[in-house]
Simulated scan of single mutants.
Amino acid sequence: MPNQPTGDPKAHDTSKFSDSLSGSCLCGSITVTITEKDLFSKPRGHLCHCSNCRKVSGSYVASNLLVEADKVKIDDRDGTLKTYEDKASLSGNPVYRSFCSTDGNPVKSETAAYPGKVVVKMGMMDRIPQPEAEGFGLHRHEWQGKHDGVPVYKLKWAGPEKERMPWGP
Results as ranks from 00 to 15, higher is better:
His49Lys: 02
Glu110Arg: 11
Cys25Asp: 01
Thr6Asp: 07
Phe99Gln: 05
Pro106Asn: 14
Val67Gln: 00
Leu90Ala: 14
Ala88Phe: 12
Val119Lys: 01
Gly168Lys: 06
Asp76Gln: 09
Phe136Asp: 02
Pro5Tyr: 06
Asp126Ile: 03
Lys71Pro: 04
Ala158Gln: 13
Lys16Glu: 14
Glu134Met: 04
Lys42Arg: 14
Met122Asn: 00
Tyr153Thr: 10
Asp70His: 13
Gly79Arg: 07
Phe17His: 00
Leu138Asp: 14
Ala62Arg: 02
Lys82His: 14
Asn93Glu: 12
Thr83Leu: 02
Thr102Ala: 02
Ala62Asp: 03
Val67Glu: 00
Arg97Trp: 07
Lys108Thr: 12
Thr14Phe: 00
Gly28Leu: 07
His46Gln: 04
Ser57Thr: 08
Thr31Leu: 08
Thr111Gly: 12
Val61Arg: 02
Asn52Gln: 12
Ile34Ala: 01
Ser24Asp: 07
Lys42Asp: 11
Ile34Trp: 00
Pro166Met: 09
Val56Leu: 12
Val118Ile: 11
Arg97Met: 07
Gln130Ile: 09
Gly168Tyr: 13
Ser22Trp: 09
Lys55Val: 02
Ala62His: 05
Gly92Leu: 09
Arg97Ala: 05
Val61Pro: 01
Thr33Cys: 08
Ser91Val: 13
Asp126Pro: 15
Ile34Asp: 02
Trp167Phe: 15
Lys82Cys: 08
Asn3Leu: 15
Met125His: 02
Ser15His: 11
Thr83Gln: 11
Val95Pro: 00
Asn52Ile: 08
Arg127Leu: 07
Gly137Pro: 03
Asp70Gln: 15
Ile128Val: 15
Lys16Leu: 04
Gly168Gln: 08
Glu132Arg: 14
Gly79Lys: 14
Val120Gln: 00
Lys156Phe: 10
Leu90Gly: 09
Cys50Tyr: 02
Pro106Gln: 08
His139Leu: 10
Ile30Trp: 03
Lys117Thr: 01
Glu85Ser: 14
Gly7Glu: 10
Gly116Met: 02
Phe40Leu: 05
Leu39Met: 15
Ser109Cys: 14
Pro94Ala: 10
Lys73Val: 12
Ser98Asn: 06
Glu132Leu: 12
Gly137Gln: 05
Lys10Arg: 11
Gly159Met: 10
Ala11Glu: 09
Pro166Ile: 10
Cys27Ile: 09
Asp148Cys: 06
Gly79Gln: 06
Gly104Val: 04
Ser101Gln: 06
Leu39Phe: 06
Asp70Phe: 06
Lys16Met: 08
Arg97Val: 06
Lys71Gly: 04
Asn105Ser: 15
Val72Tyr: 05
Gly149Asn: 11
Pro94Phe: 04
Leu26Val: 07
Pro106His: 12
Glu110Trp: 00
Pro151Ala: 06
Lys162Cys: 15
Tyr60Trp: 11
Glu161Val: 06
Met165Gly: 10
Asp78Cys: 07
Cys25Ile: 05
Asp70Thr: 13
Asp78Leu: 14
Thr35His: 04
His147Val: 08
Asp148Trp: 02
Ser24Leu: 03
Ser91Trp: 13
Glu68Asn: 02
Lys10Val: 03
Thr102Phe: 05
Glu132Asn: 07
Gly28Asn: 08
Ser15Asp: 13
Asp76Ser: 11
Trp157Pro: 04
Ser63Tyr: 01
Lys16Cys: 02
Thr111Trp: 00
Asp75Thr: 15
Leu26Asp: 03
Ile30Asp: 04
Trp167His: 11
Leu90Ile: 13
Ala133Trp: 00
Lys117Asp: 01
Ser18Phe: 01
